[in-house]
Amino acid sequence: MRKASRLFEIIQILRLATRPVTAATIAGTLEVTVRSIYRDIAALQGMRVPIEGGRGIGYIMRPGFDLPPLMFSIEETEAIVLSLALLERTGDDELKEAARRVNQKIAGAIPAPLRQTLHSKALHAWGTIAPSPLGLDLALVRRAIRDEQKLMLDYRDEAGRATQRTIQPLALIYYSATAVVVAWCDLRQAMRNFRADRVENCGLSADYFRGEGDGLRDLWISGWRTSPPPGPPPSSTR
């Protein structure tokens, strides 16, 4: 997690807390070291964010500090609720957990009449829920896309042939059956689509393709005129 995102998350955790929260608890929630939390809290206090407490005691936000309010209409709130529900149908465990945190943050920031929309269970996203792929961490793929870092795959195609690929991941397409990674394949020297449920193993490469991602995505999109983006993949027969 980048430092700016982590500072925002710490503010949110303390803003919603009703009692002091220890650095260890915050570190466990954000999956970083306790030492990082101590440094982050010191940085926030240096920015005049009114955090009180200390090591071994816990931290709490002094009343009166808040982030700018989120002002959503009923229709906008319903759009968010349905979008978050759709995330539950993906096989991306990190995004599903993020959706639950978004729900909590919105509930803590909007007026009571709109908050009821979040808890009424009147809106549902129905259909097949994609299983989490066994050999591929979709969170790792999303981070590699953001950081423009290459990935190494052990991949098995629809005919069962196994290959090893080094790819430049550009986009993720979520379907009800599985997710598809759109990438430039160094082996084939072409754009390729890789089904997440056919990846047997995946790891980060030491190589990057920084500054090239946008151009490669433009190349992919320009190809839609002759070869449209992949439709829903057939059911896996693993």
Rank of each mutant, 00 (worst) to 15 (best):
H119N: 12
R115V: 06
A139L: 00
D154H: 11
R100H: 10
L138V: 11
R89S: 05
T128Q: 12
L86S: 13
D93W: 03
Q149T: 12
A112H: 01
D92F: 08
N103S: 13
A98T: 07
L86I: 11
N103V: 09
D147A: 14
G108Y: 01
G160R: 02
A109C: 07
H119D: 14
P111H: 12
L87D: 02
D157L: 06
V141Y: 04
T90Q: 02
R143S: 10
M152I: 08
D154V: 11
I145K: 04
W126A: 13
H119S: 15
L118C: 00
E88S: 14
S120F: 08
A98P: 02
K150P: 06
I129W: 05
E97C: 06
D157H: 03
T117Q: 11
A112I: 11
R101N: 05
P113G: 08
K96L: 07
H119W: 12
D157T: 04
V102T: 07
R156H: 06
L134N: 08
K150M: 14
Q149F: 04
R101T: 07
A112W: 02
R89P: 04
L86E: 13
P113L: 11
I129Q: 00
S120H: 10
R156F: 02
V141S: 04
L86F: 12
A159S: 13
S132D: 04
K150L: 05
E88G: 15
L87N: 06
V102M: 12
L140S: 02
P133K: 00
R142T: 09
T90H: 02
R142I: 05
H119E: 15
E97Q: 08
I106F: 02
P113F: 09
D157R: 03
A159G: 10
W126K: 13
G135C: 06
D147F: 06
Q104D: 13
R156I: 12
E148I: 01
L95D: 14
I145S: 00
A98L: 11
P113A: 07
Y155P: 06
T128H: 10
R115E: 15
R156D: 03
T90C: 04
H124Q: 14
P111V: 08
L153F: 15
D93S: 14
G160T: 07
E94I: 11
L114P: 00
T128C: 00
E148M: 00
P131T: 11
L87P: 00
T128A: 10
A139T: 03
M152A: 11
S132T: 15
H119V: 10
Q104E: 14
L134Y: 08
L134H: 10
G135H: 10
G160Y: 01
Q149I: 08
P113Y: 08
R115W: 03
G108M: 02
G135R: 07
T117Y: 13
R89V: 09
E97T: 13
E158P: 01
